[in-house]
C-alpha cells in the first residue's frame, strides 16, 4: 500500500540511463509513466532499490515520419499522444484507435508506449496493432544498440528479451502495402477493463483478393500471438464472408487461452473466432481504422 524506500535517478541522456541500469543491475528498475511499476511496488510485487526514470529524455516523446524509415514513435510517447496524433490519424488511425481502447483517460495521460511493451502483459492493447503493422523496435543498451521485430521482443507473461541495461527507444512502423488495419478489443466493461481477448488485423487487398494478412491476438496466450495458419490460409484467396469466418476458426484453434476469473478458455476461443472475422472485415472495408 505504501511505496518502499528507493533511490531515484532521472538522467538527461540515454547513455547515462543505460549506464545506471548497468551499474545497479538487478537492483534497478527503469520507470517511464509509472502506471505499472509504481502499482507493482505498492502491491509489494516489485522492490527495486533504484529507480531510473527516463522522463527527462524529451527526444523519446516524438511521433514523426522519417522518409525511408517509416513512422517513428518514441518510447516515451504517452497513450494519449497516440490518441491525439495528427500524423497517426492520417497514416495509421488504427494505432490511436487501439490506444483509445486502453484503460482510463488518467492512465492514458501517464502510461507510455515503451512501458506498455516492456511490461509484457498478455492482454496489452498496443502490441497487437503494432505487430500487425510489422513494427520494429530500436533498443539501446550500455554496450550498443540493436533493432528487432516487435513480435520477437516478448518471451512470456511479463518477460521480454531485453537485457537489464537495455531500453526501447523507438517503435518504427515501416512503409507498407497493407491497405487496412484495426484492433478490436473485448473487455467486460466499456472502459477500464483488461482485454478478455483482442484481435488486430492488417490486410493487403487488391481487386477483392487478399494479397497478404497479419493477424495478432491478445490475452489468449503467454504473449501477443500471430495467427499464422489463419494468415497463410487467407493469402491469395478471394475475400468472402465464409473465408473470413474460416480464418476466424483457424485463429481460434491457434490461440492458447487460459481459464481465469475473467473468462473461460472456451469462451476466449469463441471471441478470437468472432473478432478475427470482424476485424478482417473492418480492415478490408474501412482501411486503417
Amino acid at each position: 500500500m505504501y511505496l518502499p524506500d528507493f533511490e531515484y535517478f532521472a538522467p538527461d541522456s540515454i547513455g547515462e540511463a543505460c549506464q545506471l541500469l548497468s551499474q545497479f543491475g538487478a537492483k534497478a528498475k527503469l520507470i517511464s509513466g509509472g502506471t505499472d511499476v509504481l502499482v507493482k511496488m505498492k502491491n509489494e510485487l516489485l522492490a527495486p532499490e533504484v529507480l531510473v526514470s527516463i522522463k527527462n529524455l524529451e527526444e523519446l516523446k516524438k511521433i514523426e515520419y522519417v522518409p525511408g524509415k517509416g513512422v517513428v514513435i518514441g518510447a516515451r510517447a504517452k497513450h494519449n499522444d497516440l490518441v491525439y496524433s495528427e500524423l497517426l490519424a492520417k497514416r495509421y488511425p488504427s494505432i490511436p484507435g487501439a490506444a483509445k481502447q486502453m484503460a482510463h483517460n488518467q492512465i492514458r495521460n501517464s502510461g507510455t508506449v515503451g512501458g506498455n511493451i516492456v511490461n509484457a502483459v498478455p492482454s496489452a492493447d498496443l502490441p497487437p496493432i503494432l505487430i500487425a503493422l510489422s513494427a520494429t523496435v530500436h533498443i539501446v543498451g550500455a554496450k550498443g544498440s540493436r533493432s528487432l521485430a516487435l513480435e520477437d521482443v516478448f518471451t512470456g507473461p511479463n518477460t521480454t528479451c531485453l537485457a537489464p541495461d537495455e531500453i526501447i527507444t523507438e517503435v518504427i512502423i515501416p512503409d507498407q502495402k497493407m491497405t487496412g488495419s484495426t484492433y478490436m478489443k473485448f473487455g467486460l466493461r466499456a472502459a477500464g477493463a483488461l482485454a478478455v481477448a483482442g484481435v488486430a488485423a492488417a490486410v493487403w487487398v487488391e481487386n477483392g483478393v487478399m494479397k497478404d494478412a497479419r493477424i495478432v491476438m491478445s490475452a489468449v496466450g503467454p504473449t501477443p500471438m500471430r495467427a499464422k495458419k489463419a494468415e497463410d490460409f487467407l493469402k491469395g484467396k478471394k475475400i468472402t464472408d465464409e473465408l473470413l469466418a474460416e480464418a476466424g476458426k483457424k485463429a481460434a484453434e491457434e490461440c492458447k487461452p487460459i481459464d481465469d476469473y475473467r473468462a473461460s478458455a472456451e469462451y476466449r476461443r469463441n471471441l478470437v473466432s468472432v473478432f478475427t472475422k470482424r476485424s478482417l472485415r473492418k480492415a478490408i472495408d474501412e482501411g486503417h481504422v
Binding site: 467486460l188 477500464g192 477493463a193
Partner: peptide, 28 residues
C-alpha cells in the same frame, strides 16, 4: 451484468479492487 466478487480455491478474493471488481462506468 458486471459485478461478482470472485474467490480462489482457498477462499481468497481475487478481484477485490476497483480495477478487478467491474462496476459499470458512465459509458456502460
Amino acid at each position: 451484468i458486471f459485478e461478482q466478487v470472485q474467490f480462489d480455491d482457498k477462499g481468497k478474493i481475487v478481484n477485490g479492487s476497483m480495477g478487478g471488481y467491474l462496476m459499470p462506468t458512465a459509458l456502460d
